[in-house]
Design a protein around this nucleic acid. Structure first.
Lengths: 147, 147
DNA sequence: AAAGATTGACCGCTCAATCTTA
DNA sequence: TAAGATTGAGCGGTCAATCTTT
């Protein structure tokens, strides 16, 4: 993936495609670095915030849907969050197939601190884009529509 | 679309940050899927095209620099490309520390077919963006400057 | 059989530690 | 010692196969 994101060499005109991918990659890298300082990642914060917003334990399948990923991904992410002491797995007595993830106190605090960092970046990005935000938004939407 | 007729509510408006990241992710996913049909990935095509453009075997460290990634990444990527029969590792008699990657015939063909697929997407993206391309480009550049 | 979750194997990427050669 | 490459461990993601429970 990284290879496709290589920066333009002086003699070559950068394609819009590669520019978009590279920019997004660098943007994400910046956020990941910021989150590292509190021992978190975007993936982890995503799960923690989903749980915090929900306010109650969520089945892993639910978590996968909300985070737009595959179930096995959540299984492993929750493994790590559990090892970090941020989340606990609970059984559902109603249906013994389902496992629910619930936030620990440390998990709630992590959701807050990680969330604050991401919101700060959202502010920064919004401010940087300014009036171009809507243009950019529409442009990206058009790209998505093309599948 | 009636949302655009009134001021966006702060708590509901999707953040530009997450939109950009999600769009880029979907865009890349589309390309990866297209490349799957010829058994390639963006990472692999990146390396193959670098070698094809260079026209001669490149030291793995060179390859890492051009593709803006860490050496160990290239080591493993070349492992897989070698297993695919697309590149070969060669020794440098001048300096026995360096290993060079060279394209096989199949590798040259793969660089072409993969390159064609990516170029087709570049065309598509450029056409979709149209006149917004420069605005988008400047906006993304500003984001990068903010690190 | 179908749903929910997990496991194992892989890709792509990173870092730290290691090995070889200069 | 330093440079070039590799190895090992880990994160985040996918898919296919599996196990348990419904």
């Amino acid at each position: 993936m990284k290879d496709s994101l290589r920066p333009p060499r002086p003699d070559v005109r950068p394609s819009a495609l590669l520019s978009v991918l590279a920019s997004a990659h660098r943007l994400q890298a910046g956020i990941e670095t910021a989150l590292e300082e509190v021992g978190l990642s975007m993936a982890k914060v995503g799960v923690l915030r989903t749980l915090a917003t929900e306010g109650q334990p969520l089945a892993l399948g639910e978590l996968a849907e909300r985070n737009q990923c595959v179930p096995s991904n959540i299984t492993q992410l929750v493994d790590r969050l559990e090892a970090d002491g941020l989340v606990r797995r609970e059984s559902d007595p109603k249906d013994r197939r389902v496992r629910r993830a619930s936030l620990t106190d440390a998990g709630r605090r992590a959701a807050d601190s990680g969330g604050a960092i991401i919101e700060a970046w959202e502010q920064r990005v919004a401010a940087t884009l300014g009036e171009d935000a809507t243009t950019l938004q529409r442009a990206l939407d058009r790209l998505d529509e093309k599948r």
